[in-house]
Design a protein around this nucleic acid. Sequence first.
DNA 1: GTTCTAGAAC
DNA 2: GTTCTAGAAC
Length: 790
Amino acid sequence: MDPDAGGSTAAPSTSTATPGTGPGAETKEGVGKKVMVILVGPPGSGKSTFAEAVLNAAAATGRPWARVCQDTIGKGKAGTKILCLKAAADALKEGKSVFIDRCNLEREQRADFVKLGSTVQADVHAVFLDLPAKVCISRSVSRTGHEGNLQGGMAAMVVNRMLKKKEVPLLTEGFSRIMFCKDDDDIKKAVDTYGALGPSDSLASGVFGEKSKVPVQAGIMRFLKKADTSSAQKSSGTMLTSSERNPGQQNTLPKQENPEAIGTCSIEVEKKSNNMKKNEEQSKQSVSSVINSHTLAFPSISTADFQFDLERASDIIVDTAAEFVQKHDNGRLVLVDLSQKSRILSLVKDKASKKSIDSSRFFTFVGDITQLKSKGGLQCNVIANAANWRLKAGGGGVNAAIFNAAGEALQRATKECADTLRPGSSVSVPLPSTSPLHQKEGVTHVIHVLGPNMNPMRPDCLKNDYTKGCKILHDAYNSLFENFASIVQNHTVKQNVETSSKKSASGVISPNDSKMKRADSHDSERAKKYKLLPPILPSRQNHEHKGSNTQNHHDNSMGSSDAPNQAREEDGKKNSAVTSKTWGSWAQALYEVAMHPEKYKNSDSILETSDEVVVLKDLYPKAKKHVLVISRTDGLDSLADVKKEHLPLLRSMHSVGLKWAQKFLEEDASLTFRLGYHSVPSMRQLHLHVISQDFNSPSLKNKKHWNSFTSAFFLDSVDVMEEVEQQGSATISPDEKILGMELRCHRCRSAHPNIPKLKSHIAACKSSFPSHLLKKDKLLSASTPHMDCT
DNA sequence: GTTCTAGAAC
DNA sequence: GTTCTAGAAC
């Protein structure tokens, strides 16, 4: 109970420890009293023991604690980080303080938890169990029955590897307090500190348990090590080999580890900020280095005329820029604004430095985006334009300025690339060398971007819907940065091709030249990548899509003599007029069977054929019994095509499905069946799934498989028939995100970290099915009286 | 080292 | 839809 029990290294601040104001009631409501302690340490460092010891000790304090342990979060077994995050969020919401019991050795591993802590206004602490590697290894080697099979000789190697990647927790990551525990004494102090923390106490901020003298040396050691990595690598080469050969004896490791392990926050922070300043200065001063690298200058999208909230916009800019920097090795991003006082610039600058983004790759610049080289001394080969949806020159702001500066050449070049632009997308336009912007400023590409609009006076106003708005703005920046990355990549390859061709005797690249092929393959890669970006509306790309689809039909002729390609092609056209979906070559199998079942007569997969339907055993059944009732109506590819006129067909399909379910139930009375459609099927040709609810099949392999049969993505046949009858069509939730959702048991709805764990659960789960399935005969079992559907 | 997932390619 | 594979996690 005594908050001072932690000893001198961890004296809780007394400022908020004011007892006598009803501590019991305060626990849940007191803001800022919750603590999230992120444990940091390799396997064998004693994280779980630590957390349990605190939980035991804290029982007397009245502060509720929860321990979120990744090793046991999946129903007693190992789970995922996502599960941990969810559990932590739930516990914090309930007013509990939390221990995050997972390795958390890398900054990235910790970041999401830190973020969670700050969103629920909890104090975020780190306790770094920084014991000698030897100790952790020997503990993890000797333990038995550890989840995740991390024990024995293997553990040594894993711990060894993890320690190589470890990153010392820093205050700049968002921790308000960090405790270093280098031995059992330190650990005991930390246990006492947290174990004694009353509901209304809080601990002082700062770094504790760090020896002040050693770190300086460590910092120097680290610096020296970095300065001469090559020689260090050479000298340690033999040592590494010996340790690999004999992982049990890690005598080289503690030595190697010492300089990495220590390093005070203050030194780290100073080093970081010095680096940042240095980088910033470099990027401003040395123009020559800028010329040599690809640089994208971009205005803040949507925050001027489109009135998008600056706070949110700055978050998105920093996030997407950080992603870009992490993902791509080349290319720099510069956010440009005209005014020195620009609020968006200062917001972004602050957030970027907090996020420790490499400031030589992403920085802000004050200047006119059309005169960056001539007036600002900053050469940017690519600039982004905050365009309008028509990609027209007029208007005001950046759009007008860029079109004016680039002249007619940009308008012509833009027209060649696209007619219109959708919010959240971008289009990259090569700027002809005749353009003054190209000549004066060295701009080779303009990327037009359209962001979300919050201005009621402008088209497509989102009326303050920031959920949509943020997503669109995020997409817009992603699209912009990916287009830029393609330019960088393409340019690099072209340069390589050019230099190598110059070296060759002729200097001319013939079509047969292998170097040319390399360039081609890259171009096609680029084209593919481009397609993945949010599509631009213009017909150009739609044609491309349809073209490739037609190609697929050709490819899929499979030499069948009595099915002329021409007819197939017409089918494709007819259907693409009904549904907008395009079908890959692999998605045609059911169509083939439905149109020509006689060809597959000898296959034992076909159970029944009539004028209306074909019944087929699913080639990759997702349960003990899984058959498809395929409609034979040409042109009816999915539920989206179904109209009232198809109601008799739906009823026939249902009836045939029921018949087969009955038949299977006679063979095995333990089964339960469900009949339904996938909202968005992967295979062309309307088909009804008849599937037993055991889901016991090796072909059920992933999240998508599971969720497609157990979430709202699976539409019960009875509901579909009812909706089509009443509304003339079935309600299809277009959200395919549902397929990526967490894995939940279809009976008891419990969550599971992965497919194997889920499968072992469902094999044993005896809970009754959710109530919505018990209505309207959605489930068929031996005990259910079967209803005919006529 | 193994287990598992997610994304790309077909 | 499946298969293959890189990489995340321990």
